[in-house]
């Protein structure tokens, strides 16, 4: 298993033992593991298997002991991982393009132990952090971060009032939404709920920047599709696309910054427009009348009435809306009969 998302849902993966690694005593081990993940380009990394090595189960004193004794535990915390986290947060902030010199009210999704929050603090922003893992939030409490914390499953949607936040960042979170951990949650549904409620919680204009490690291109497509459906504009920003290690994906979403197509000018519709409209209305009426004539009104075709091909197409459509991967494309050969040939 190379990806933590495949091991367990986030609230369980970042459980007590995992979260304790963020505090002083256990910190270095966790950071070594995370480093392997972050440095080696996440998805492709096989390094996380280091998790299962028995050496990892040793208390932190052993990795520390080979360092010079003058290094305090605080020093050990600032390993490369923290730098990478900090770099990603800095980059995300840069992408947010907040007005310079002003402190903004930001939402940090998946704040965890508050690593990214500290950077927001340094830049003088006020932030609210949400995370699904109670253990990680406990660590954040111990570290006495400035922002307000909340235990929240982002797939369930937010309850924030419209226009609350000036921006939103999230570091390495979105890929967690792609799992179907229970039979009742479906990734597209959770993504849609997440993006629609987030869209309303952000003010207009503002931006949301997500750093994430997608598993495949299909995931990227699904995420962007859901975001667009929720009303966001914007797209992907890929840093260092040619480097396997440093490659980072940022989903940069915008609320109301794009040019929207203008409505028609003037008071009245022009006469040709009117005529077209009238024609449409007439056709609509005829269409309804025709459909009402055959069979019972307003009743859907039952599955028995469908031909073989229609049934197959319907099923494939259903799978696609559910976000199932690998549904074959439709063609003229779809669901054709295979006759016996002599």
């Amino acid at each position: 298993m190379s990806r933590p998302e495949e091991l367990a849902p986030p609230e369980i993966f970042y459980g007590d033992t995992e979260a304790r690694k963020y505090t002083g005593k256990w910190v270095s081990i966790w950071f070594f593991c995370i480093m392997a993940f972050e440095v080696h380009g996440g998805p492709q990394s096989q390094q996380l298997s280091a998790l299962s090595y028995p050496s990892c189960l040793l208390p932190a004193t052993s990795p520390i002991s080979h360092l010079s004794p003058s290094r305090a535990p605080a020093d050990i915390r600032s390993t490369r991982v923290q730098n990478i986290q900090a770099q990603m947060t800095d980059r995300a902030l840069e992408l947010l393009q907040l007005p310079p010199g002003e402190s903004a009210f930001l939402l940090d999704i998946g704040c965890g132990s508050g690593l990214s929050g500290e950077i927001l603090d340094e830049d003088g922003h006020v932030w609210v952090g949400v995370d699904i893992s109670p253990s990680m939030l406990e660590v954040a409490l111990e570290r006495e971060v400035e922002g307000d914390l909340m235990l929240h499953d982002i797939g369930q949607g937010f309850g924030f009032r419209p226009g609350t936040f000036d921006g939103c960042i999230s570091i390495s979170v979105l890929q967690w939404l792609m799992n179907a951990d229970t039979s009742t949650n479906s990734p597209p549904q959770r993504l849609t709920r997440f993006f629609t409620t987030l869209h309303s919680a952000l003010k207009n204009p503002s931006r949301a920047v997500f750093q994430f490690y997608p598993n495949s291109d299909d995931q990227v497509q699904l995420i962007t599709q859901c975001a667009q459906r929720a009303g966001f504009g914007g797209g992907l920003v890929v840093d260092y696309p040619n480097s396997r290690k440093a490659r980072k994906m940022y989903l940069c979403l915008m609320v109301g910054q794009q040019e929207v197509p203008k409505g028609l000018d003037g008071e009245e519709m022009t006469s040709s427009d009117k005529a077209k409209k009238r024609e449409q209305i007439q056709n609509e009426r005829r269409r309804r009348r025709d459909s009402g004539r055959d069979g019972k009104k307003g009743k859907k075709k039952s599955s028995k009435d469908l031909t073989g091909k229609e049934w197959v197409l319907k099923k494939k459509d259903l799978y696609r809306t559910r976000g199932k991967e690998g549904v074959p494309l439709d063609s003229k050969y779809t669901a054709r009969k295979r006759r016996v040939k002599f």
Partner: peptide, 16 residues
């Protein structure tokens, strides 16, 4: 608890 509100919902309370 500890200044952290628990906003988790049960399965049937999640909005569509």
């Amino acid at each position: 608890q500890n200044g952290i509100p628990n906003m988790l919902l049960a399965e049937h309370e999640i909005s569509r």
